[in-house]
Design a protein around this nucleic acid. Structure first.
Lengths: 223, 223
DNA sequence: TAGATTGTTAATCGATTAACAATC
DNA sequence: TAGATTGTTAATCGATTAACAATC
């Protein structure tokens, strides 16, 4: 499609896009990549929705926030839609990412293959344990937290993952903001205060389990 | 409060509670525990909301799904509200949990202190690597995946964490369902097909970073 | 052409916010 | 009592679904 109509300056968002739409976009991308792996060249809103438990209308409406990507009567070319969604999400490039905190979780995430496969590469790790400084983990150099601003600047890092204990998280976040970081993925079980110009995503692993126990305890017909 | 009116059979949910409400409940709980740590005995909907960026009305409405927990003119007793929310979420008890997959992520989660602090203890780990079987990690015994059903039954496990590669996840999920598991927290980057009577929560770490890159790329006044 | 599926508008549904009587 | 804050209803807002003309 890639129409050249008066719509909007590509990849800037015209209206305010609901957060839920962006989450689903990531899910569409994941399923599309799966479809391609399974040698599907085409798909359509009904199929894509069914894979994720959404209606066809929802799929089309979500995509309509960003432009026209399909072919009436035909559906969507998987590769084309993948490219379009990657562009929307900003993962048509590779993002250098900082990892802060090298406890169990931080180290595990450093090894996580799923990041590089989807456009993120961790290019520097930070800790306060002097024993770890200078070390190479998975080929990634470990710096002292005091060198955060410098390394962030030199390596052009814009996103950071926070995997430090809750008590240390806000102080780290402040340092990251001071270093010019633009987005923080926070695994510490606290609500980080960040200025408006810094984006924030929080993942609290215990909360995810709580959602599960709630669902199990309060399952319909299961008091 | 603990009123004894005709409302509902405690801890079963009267109406359908939106998923978003349950997520916020977990956030309220986290902030309340923080408040108690900071020696606050009381709070109110305005304060609790402000800590998380919600309106006071939202806090009160969310709680109203489950009963009456506050004191008009006064606010909420932190400890009392904590107990009430724990009961709603089902974390007023301790849940034995199974960990499936002992790659980097699985091992890291095994060590994660945040789980036990919030009512979940991992009591068994499963892998297919025979080298790991019988091993004790953090005092947790490692079993072969073939023994899943038996161990789940013996230990009364109802929740499982899936931390295996995407390609193996659905097969594991099927085994878990067959073993009688009631809820699955899935870290594999795939959409698991589960029967309706099994609850599912998915965390895709790469997707969380995608949400962040979207926010950074499409930030208002930042094309 | 007939059949299929998109993009989009209108209708529906659900969730958030505002307002306020009841309560302490 | 006056002031504060709840629980709850009504009003608003936003998101999802249905429907259909346009398109291939």
């Amino acid at each position: 499609m890639e129409d050249s109509r008066e719509k909007q300056p590509q990849s800037a968002v015209e209206a305010n896009v609901p957060q839920a739409v962006v989450s689903r976009l990531s899910l569409y991308l994941r399923e599309l990549q799966r479809l391609v792996q399974d040698c599907h060249a085409m798909t359509n809103s009904t199929q894509l929705g069914a894979l994720l438990g959404f209606t066809d209308a929802q799929v089309r409406k979500d995509l309509a926030y960003f432009g026209q990507f399909g072919y009436p009567g035909i559906g969507y070319r998987c590769e084309e839609l993948i490219a379009a969604i990657k562009k929307i999400l900003g993962t048509d490039r590779s993002w250098p990412v900082a990892m802060v905190g090298l406890g169990n979780l931080g180290r595990a995430l450093l090894h996580y293959r799923g990041f590089s496969q989807r456009g993120f590469r961790i290019v520097a790790a930070f800790d306060i344990d002097v024993d770890k400084i200078g070390e190479l983990v998975e080929g990634i150099e470990v710096f002292h937290r005091d060198d955060l601003a410098e390394v962030v600047a030199v390596k052009g890092i814009r996103l950071a993952i926070v995997a430090v204990p809750g008590a240390a998280a806000q102080a780290i976040a402040d340092s990251l903001v001071a270093a010019g970081i633009e987005g923080v993925l926070n695994f510490a079980p606290v609500t980080l205060a960040l200025p408006d110009h810094v984006s924030r995503v929080g993942v609290d692993l215990a909360i995810e389990l709580e959602q599960l126990s709630f669902a199990v305890v309060n399952r319909p017909e299961n008091p």
